[in-house]
């Protein structure tokens, strides 16, 4: 028996969220006195694979080969389910990234397991297995008990800390057997902006709303994000107006995020917007209207015109970054 974690790589490199889920899996393995196996799919160099042992992996299963170059959800789900069965895994955990959300439910059904999706904390394991999740679009938390023997867990990024626990890990090749249904999706094109920070995983987010007056004024928002190494986001009216792409819309009907720092510029703070960002650890609100409701949900507030405050913040961020180096 084991705890099996699927560590997702992006072009052969593991992101912070991969080490978060390995640390999370290590905590369950420790609690349940089980070994931790980490599964990697796709072309990853040995040196990179061994980084997984830094966070507690004692066995690293690697799946490589041509069929796993372009990863479809079904291919990955089949590989994870077969690896879990081969390893007799009791707990199967992965990141609830865009692809993880499309994979975890398939793995749960293949393994006839209960699914704890989008969890945000370590489960309570003293009596049963109770997980904490966001509910009602960030307005509440739900606690859910998983009753099945085998449990599949997906965890949102930025929900669990990195815990170093260096182990000696063996790398074991694994070859899943794919069926016709696993390869029915053809990936025609993948477009990634290499220099852009992915919004759901971003630790810092700079977001702006209608207070920016028009898309032509977003340069300063992007500059601030760039200096901080932050992702950019926007409010719903902004994406509805076509000023920014829908993929940047955070809020109840957009993406829910939980960064360490969320800076909101010219966003009044409607309840639907707050729902999507209230899990942020620190919120800074900049608005020229001192009565903006968002100030009530913020940690730091600055009353002022965005066009004066943001350039000052860019300078402040530059100085702060210079001081760090």
């Amino acid at each position: 028996m084991s705890v099996l974690v699927y560590a997702e790589n992006l072009q052969g490199k593991f992101k912070k969220s991969a080490f978060e889920i390995v640390s999370f899996g290590a905590a369950i393995a420790h609690e349940k006195n089980l070994p931790l196996t980490v599964l990697s799919i796709g072309q990853v160099a040995e040196e990179e694979l061994l980084r997984l042992a830094t966070y507690g992996a004692v066995k690293i299963m690697k799946v490589e080969g041509e069929a796993f170059h372009a990863l479809s959800d079904q291919t990955v789900a089949t590989a994870i389910a077969q690896a879990a069965a081969a390893d007799a895994a009791q707990y199967v955990a992965m990141t609830a990234s865009f692809s993880g959300k499309a994979i975890a439910p398939r793995v749960a059904i293949k393994l006839k397991a209960g699914l704890a999706d989008n969890v945000i904390d370590l489960p309570k394991m003293s009596d049963g297995f109770v997980v904490k999740k966001n509910a009602y679009s960030g307005k509440a938390y739900a606690y859910c008990e998983v009753l099945s023997d085998v449990k599949v867990i997906s965890m949102l990024p930025n929900s669990y800390k990195l815990v170093e626990d260096q182990k000696q890990a063996a790398i074991v090749p694994f070859s899943p057997v794919l069926g016709a249904a696993d390869t029915s999706v053809t990936i025609r094109e993948t477009i990634r902006s290499a220099d852009k920070v992915s919004l759901p995983e971003a630790e810092l987010v700079v977001s702006a709303g209608r207070g920016m007056k028009g898309p032509e004024n977003w340069g300063m928002i992007e500059e601030l994000a760039d200096v901080l190494g932050a992702a950019t986001a926007c409010s719903k009216p902004v994406s509805d107006a076509g000023w920014r792409p829908h993929s940047e819309h955070v809020g109840q009907t957009g993406i829910a995020i939980s960064p360490n720092l969320y800076i909101a510029v010219g966003i009044s703070g409607a309840i639907q917007h707050l729902a999507g960002v209230s899990s942020s650890k620190v919120i800074v609100v900049i608005n020229k209207d001192p009565e903006a409701p968002f100030f009530k949900a913020a940690d730091y507030g600055i009353v002022g015109d965005a066009f004066e405050v943001v350039p000052r913040l860019i300078n402040a961020a530059k100085n702060f970054k210079a001081g760090q180096n």
Binding site: L115, A116, S278
Partner: peptide, 30 residues
Amino acid sequence: VHTRHHSFDKPATRSAVKMVSADAVEQLFE
């Protein structure tokens, strides 16, 4: 079914907002 709803909870409310003067944002990140 393999899961059972257990309970709900609401996020803790944030402590009061700290206002920073627009003229003093230079030290915000520190």
